[in-house]
Design a protein around this nucleic acid. Structure first.
Length: 596
RNA sequence: GCGCCCGUAGCUCAGUUGGAUAGAGCAUGGGAUUUCUAAUCCCAGGGUCACUGGUUCGAGUCCAGUCGGGCGUACCA
């Protein structure tokens, strides 16, 4: 609906009333927003004030000009009431026409996309997310990248972009050297046969503590202290094992090939539970053959040079830390891999954009990476670091178990489902297996929703108690709203296809009907805003508003018991609300149930 | 030291890139059920937007500084 302003603004520009650069037009249109207060109408435009300043005009005068043009535009008049005079310093407040809203809702009822348009210029977007290290079990730190990345991929695809999701697995770095080193010294064949990833996880944790553990961490564990005494040079030896793997050492390569399938299977199991899929899983190992070329080419083009035995790109002068692409011992770094990856993706996928859904702590790395890529001349692709904050525990410290270990993702999901089961279990009428299914949907949904509903840039406090609340801005509240819609339609024995076909008019006489309809019609705008800043929390906030509008509508007005023609109209609204809510949750990777 | 991010109600957080009287949820207090899922709805209280100055019609938002916190900072990813 915002778009209706564009004609009037173009007109202004063409008439030379004010100079509006074409590229500013969309940001001006973005300034058309839903009003803070219903008494100001439905939408409000604030562009007159800003434009007046630049043009040296009086804001109200300019607002009147815009209003005149709006009123003349047939496209505008079809959707909005004739606008009144500007309010205050120059607000242009408009109200959607009842007949236009009603017609739009009716069209949405019959449309598989609810009237949400496909983007005008679809782009090819690579979304790089999750990217766990395969050598260690996935933990709570991976949840944000996985959940946010998956949601963004779903949303961009729904908007009409060509999306390519890629899981850039950490399957080749130092952490694998740790496993190799540890396996050779205290690997347990029997334990590996029983539960491969558990054994590899044990080795990883032990070696990590040996190589970068704090003194008190070492002294707290007698066995660990012994190992530390026995292998004082563990850190260096680990790097040596990593280097051997990269050089193609037969023994290490064989072990790598032996360990990988179990690692991958373990990770896949988590993705299945989370309902997350990838188009590609091109890990670090895949790009290994291209790394030498990256360094050579950077050197040859005079971008990288030797320093203290290593090779790096000096981006901010000689005194600032360079972007290292090769270590003094000859090994490559993840900077090298990331550069090779960009190059490979550009050559094979020709993307317009690449999104990296990665922890904000790696901001500097991406600044350097993007700068280097541009200097290297890798083309005019948009490289975006979609950063997010840390997951914290109740104490405000990074989320850990009481023993101080990181929380495994598997057990986290288990606990979410288990707690959801306790909440759902109050209804004895439900069969056990169905209850289990509902608990799974509610539990996993709660974990995802809690994460997505937070502004991604801030750290967030992980709390099962809060995310599983049945009231407030939670997955359960939203899923409940969907289940209530199902309940009404089921109770009325309504065939939804027939309902959609036979609906002839949507009546919006009651303010609650109107508010619900207006909210539903904002779906497309919200998705547009989500993409603009890669912020799924705008979608959760809107879903919450929508569910609240529905609850309010449902509470105040009879539906099945209403008389015609209200009954058919309200049933159509119910059906549409349910579908839109379900679609919105699906775009977040969250499932729904028919009963709960 | 330098760089990036953050500081909003008792708690957890929004705040649409500078807009109208700073909003939700939880918690607290009150109310609604002969009626489609009350896992709901309606109403109320609760704020020096860390602090100081600046920019302008207008600042939680932009600029400068101060205080407090987090993260990063040459061969881990």
């Amino acid at each position: 609906m915002r778009r209706c302003f564009s004609h009037a603004l173009c007109g202004l520009a063409d008439d030379g009333v004010v100079a509006i650069p074409r590229e500013d037009l969309s940001t001006l249109i973005d300034q058309v927003r839903e009003t803070a207060d219903a008494k100001f109408g439905d939408y409000s435009g604030t562009m007159a004030m800003g434009l007046a300043k630049k043009a040296g005009r009086k804001p109200r005068e300019l607002a009147v000009e815009i209003i005149t043009r709006l009123a003349r535009s047939p496209e505008f008049a079809a959707i909005f009431e004739p606008p009144g005079d500007p309010v205050g310093p120059g607000f242009i407040n408009v109200t959607v026409r009842a007949d236009a809203l009603s017609a739009a809702v009716l069209a949405a009822c019959r449309d598989a996309r609810f009237g949400v348009p496909i983007v005008a210029d679809p782009e090819t977007v690579v979304i790089d997310f999750s990217s766990p290290n395969v050598a260690k079990p996935m933990h709570v730190g991976h949840i944000r990248s996985t959940v946010i990345g998956d949601a963004l991929a779903r949303i961009l695809a729904f908007r009409g972009h060509r999306t390519i999701t890629d899981n850039h697995l950490g399957d080749w770095g130092t952490q694998f050297g740790m496993i190799l080193w540890g396996w050779k010294r205290f690997g347990d064949e029997a334990a590996f046969a029983t539960d491969p990833t558990a054994e590899l996880g044990r080795i990883y944790r032990t070696v990590r503590k040996l190589t970068d553990g704090k003194p008190d961490e070492l002294s707290a564990d007698l066995g660990l202290a012994d190992l530390a005494a026995k292998y004082p040079d563990a850190g260096r030896e680990v790097l040596l094992e990593t280097a051997r793997l990269h050089e193609g050492d037969a023994e290490n390569k064989a072990l790598w090939e032996r360990f990988m399938p179990a690692c991958l299977a373990d990770i896949e199991k988590i993705y299945r539970r989370l309902d997350v899929t990838f188009d590609h899983r091109l890990g670090e190992s895949f790009f290994h053959p291209f790394l030498a070329f990256v360094v050579e080419d950077l050197q040859q083009k005079g971008l990288a040079r030797e320093s203290r035995g290593a090779i790096g790109v000096f981006l901010d002068g000689d005194d600032k830390p360079p972007f290292l692409v090769r270590k003094a011992d000859g090994a490559f770094l993840y900077a090298t891999t990331d550069l090779a990856t960009i190059q490979w993706r550009l050559a094979h996928w020709k993307p317009d954009r690449i999104l990296y859904v990665v922890d904000h702590r790696q901001g500097q790395h991406f600044d350097q990476l993007f700068q280097t890529a541009r200097r290297w001349g890798l083309g005019d692709v948009d490289l975006v670091h979609v950063a997010f904050g840390t997951v914290l525990g109740d104490d405000g410290r990074p989320f850990k178990t009481r023993a101080g270990d990181t929380v495994g993702l598997e057990s986290l999901l288990d606990e979410g489902v288990e707690r959801a089961l306790a909440v759902v279990a109050t209804d004895d009428a439900m069969a056990t297996d169905e209850r289990q299914r509902v608990a799974t949907t509610v539990g996993i949904g709660a974990i995802k929703y809690a994460d997505l509903s937070q502004n991604r840039t801030t750290d967030y406090v992980f709390s099962f108690d809060k995310m599983l609340q049945l009231t407030g801005n939670t997955a359960a509240y939203m899923q409940y709203a969907v289940a209530r819609v199902e309940g009404v339609l089921e109770k009325g024995g309504i065939d939804r296809e027939t309902l959609r076909r036979s609906a002839t008019e949507i009546l919006l006489a009651d303010p609650k009907e109107r508010a619900l309809a207006l909210e539903i019609m904002r779906f497309g705008e919200v998705l547009e805003d989500v993409e603009a800043d890669y912020r799924p929390n705008l979608l959760t906030a809107w879903l919450f508003d929508l569910a609240a509008c529905y609850s309010s509508f449902y509470d105040a007005l009879p539906i099945l018991k209403a008389s015609e023609p209200e009954r058919a109209s309200r049933l159509a609204l119910c059906d549409l609300t349910g579908r839109v809510l379900r679609q919105g949750l699906e775009l977040l990777g969250i499932g729904t149930v028919r009963k709960m």
